[in-house]
Design a protein around this nucleic acid. Sequence first.
DNA 1: CCAACTCAGCACGCTAACGCACATAAGCCT
DNA 2: AGGCTTATGTGCGTTAGCGTGCTGAGTTGG
Lengths: 236, 236
Amino acid sequence: MLEPQQNALLGLLPEEDLAHLLPHLEQVTLSLGQSLSESGRQMSHVYFPLDAIVSLLCVMEDGASTEIAVVGYEGIVGVSLFMGGETTPSRAIVQSAGTAYRLKGQLLKNEFYRAGPMQRLLLRYTQALLTQMAQTAVCNRHHSVDQQLCRWLLLSLDRLPGDKLIMTQELIANMLGVRREGVTESAGKLQRAGLISYNRGHITVIDRPGLEKRVCECYAVVKREYDRLLNHHDVM
Amino acid sequence: MLEPQQNALLGLLPEEDLAHLLPHLEQVTLSLGQSLSESGRQMSHVYFPLDAIVSLLCVMEDGASTEIAVVGYEGIVGVSLFMGGETTPSRAIVQSAGTAYRLKGQLLKNEFYRAGPMQRLLLRYTQALLTQMAQTAVCNRHHSVDQQLCRWLLLSLDRLPGDKLIMTQELIANMLGVRREGVTESAGKLQRAGLISYNRGHITVIDRPGLEKRVCECYAVVKREYDRLLNHHDVM
DNA sequence: CCAACTCAGCACGCTAACGCACATAAGCCT
DNA sequence: AGGCTTATGTGCGTTAGCGTGCTGAGTTGG
């Protein structure tokens, strides 16, 4: 059984605050490719992933896209609701199927405007998101597809229980905003180096330390900032 | 004389809330290249630019950098203070000299945690910043230096009183995270097309509509979102 | 007024990534 | 089994942007 506390934000909340929300939290299954938020559309709920992963994508008129951030058990999908804008121009797509708890948008806003621990927590999380987006921008600019693939794999791995992910090269290419063939090539290198094994949409990470050696600094910067902003000691 | 209300955030604040802050607002001159915030360092003040422009840069270990957002009269530098993280891994550099009002960080936080109009305003602004960063990331990935230069020029122009900016190609290259020669080439095209005139660090925009024709959609997306989030009607 | 410096422009060759066209290959569904 | 769809691997030519080295035109300051 999956408990709401497996989501890091909910888990960091003091018991009484969590108790407020518990009756309204609804467990849902998220399936691969499902959209939780479309550009410019108001979300009815926010989502607290448990073992699912959600990608925030920025999609352009011609259909080209790039992942700007990834959200897993450590976060929440639907930041724009409590930030006051209600909508975002970006899209939220389930990148790895799994489970999440969801909460009606209005209830989250109520909790947020009580200005208690939940507010502090959500604001700190949003700042972590800012950092992730900034680092993604600079990584897009300066680093090779090889490095970005490593970063992407590690970010996903950190949000998954095991060492397997279900993901075609086509989809990874959409996330990274590169050609499918580019991913084929980079993934091939990683496979030949014995770091991952790739099999028709099923990736198994064999040598995680090896990936960490190849990845650019962007991964560590983001991870460090999440750890700093969302550790139990500072937040509560 | 420059009034605090020339900053859009301060200008949107109801009179009584602004009155709270006025005695503590200190006018300062920002000079080109001045750093307002270093990676991981706590800021003592937040800044409300009037006619100055500040770039938020993400700098990497090897010194390569990319601008992730630009802040002018419409915004505030120092979002991380009220978001709870206190520091950011990014750097804030004055990109166009001018004037700003500044406020002690603690005073801003006090005002923020009163949970009044200022809080709503700052949160909405932060969401606009999120959008700008996301769009920058996707633009870095998919658009040519030509297009990005147009975007950058227009974003700067929107934040300046006139049609001139003081900025060498070298600095623009740092912002965009490209080679200086790349900027030379793109700027040359714009100059030959009669859109701008370039003269040793002095750029004059001659044909703004022409720039708007060449720019990628990223500019409009960001502008629209700022207008939506920070118009007087919705915020207050 | 000349020297030093800064800024802009140009000419290479180089490489990563692109777009496109195929060739397999592996699972899926009668 | 056989044919379909989907996923992956490869091999082109093309191109945008990079790194480097250099030229020359302004600007500044002694």
